[in-house]
C-alpha cells in the first residue's frame, strides 16, 4: 500500500472526503483486507487517543493564574468585536457609526458562533460589523427577512416612521437585482432598515439605510474589499447607506455608483 493510499484511508477515517471520494475508498476497502485492517487499527487508535487525551484534561485542573489570564484574554477579544464609536475619519462618519452600532447589536446574536465578520485593515469597525449582519441575515436563503413579497411595501412605511425619514427599497431591476425581503434592525442609536436583494445567480446583497444626521457633511462613496465580499458606503442629505455583497469591490462600486446617482 502506497503512502497516498494510506493518506486516503486517514482522510476517509477523519471525514475529510466528499461522498464520491469516500465511495471510491469504500470500493477499495471492500477488496483489500490489509487496508481494512489498517483502517480498523487507525480508527481504534484514534478513539483510544481521544479517550486518553480527554483523561489528561481531567487530571489537570485549571490554576488560578490560568483562569485569570483566560479572563483577561476574553476581555481583550471582546473589545475586538464590541460596538465602538468610530473615532477616526471625521464627523461625517457618524451615520455610518449608527449603522455599525445596529449591526454590532445584531452581531451579539451570533457572538459565540464561528462566523465573525473579518476586519480588513484600516476600515471603520462598523463596516466589518455591517458585514456580519449581512452574512447572518441576507445570505440566509431560507429565512433572510421578516418582510417578504408584497409585505415589504407596507414595511417600508413602518421603517420610515421609525427612522424618521422616508425610506423605501430602491428598484434595482435595471441592475438585474430583485428585492427579496426587508428587516428592521433596532439599535440604541436608532432603527435601521436592511433591504435584501438577489441577483440572477442567486447572489445576495443587502442595502442598509440609516437617517443621516442633519449637522453632518455628506460622505463620498467608499468601497472596501473583503475576502469574498465587498462593502460600499456613502451618505445623502437624508440617509446613510451601506451596500454589501458577495462580489469584488469593482462590482459593488458599479452598483453603488449607479444607486447613488439615482437617489
Amino acid at each position: 500500500m502506497t503512502l497516498t493510499e494510506r493518506t486516503d484511508i486517514n482522510a476517509y477515517l477523519d471525514g475529510e472526503l466528499g461522498p464520491d471520494e469516500a465511495a471510491e475508498i469504500e470500493a477499495k476497502l471492500a477488496e483489500d483486507e490489509e487496508a481494512r485492517a489498517r483502517l480498523e487499527a487507525y480508527a481504534r487508535q484514534k478513539d483510544q487517543l481521544g479517550a486518553a487525551l480527554a483523561g489528561l484534561g481531567e487530571g489537570a485542573p485549571s490554576t488560578l493564574k490560568t483562569a485569570r489570564l483566560q479572563k483577561r484574554l476574553a476581555a481583550a477579544l471582546a473589545r475586538r468585536t464590541a460596538p465602538r464609536r468610530v473615532v477616526f475619519g471625521g464627523p461625517w462618519l457618524r451615520g455610518g457609526a449608527q449603522i455599525a452600532a445596529a449591526c454590532a447589536l445584531v452581531a451579539f446574536g451570533w457572538w459565540g458562533h464561528a462566523s465573525y465578520a473579518p476586519t480588513a485593515p484600516n476600515v471603520p469597525e462598523y463596516v466589518s460589523e455591517a458585514f456580519g449582519a449581512h452574512t447572518v441575515f441576507a445570505e440566509d436563503v431560507v429565512r433572510p427577512a421578516e418582510f417578504t413579497g408584497g409585505a415589504v411595501d407596507g414595511a417600508a412605511e413602518w421603517f420610515s416612521s421609525k427612522i424618521g425619514v422616508p425610506v423605501s427599497a430602491p428598484d434595482l431591476a435595471s441592475l438585474d437585482l430583485q428585492l427579496v425581503g426587508a428587516r428592521l434592525l433596532g439599535t440604541k442609536e436608532g432603527p435601521l432598515a436592511q433591504f435584501i436583494y438577489e441577483d440572477t445567480d442567486g447572489g445576495r446583497y443587502s442595502l442598509t439605510l440609516a437617517k443621516h444626521p442633519e449637522d453632518r457633511p455628506l460622505a463620498p462613496l467608499k468601497v472596501v474589499d473583503y475576502p469574498d465580499r465587498a462593502v460600499g458606503y456613502w451618505s445623502t442629505p437624508n440617509i446613510d447607506f451601506a451596500l454589501i455583497g458577495k462580489k469584488d469591490g469593482q462590482a459593488i462600486q458599479t452598483i453603488a455608483t449607479n444607486l447613488a446617482e439615482r437617489i
Binding site: L69, R72, L73, A76, L77, R79, R80, T81, S115, Y116, A117, P118, T119, S128, P227
Partner: peptide
C-alpha cells in the same frame, strides 16, 4: 494572545 489580541482577525 492577550498581547496580540489586536492582531486577531475577528473573522
Amino acid at each position: 494572545a492577550i498581547a496580540a489580541a489586536d492582531s486577531w482577525q475577528p473573522g
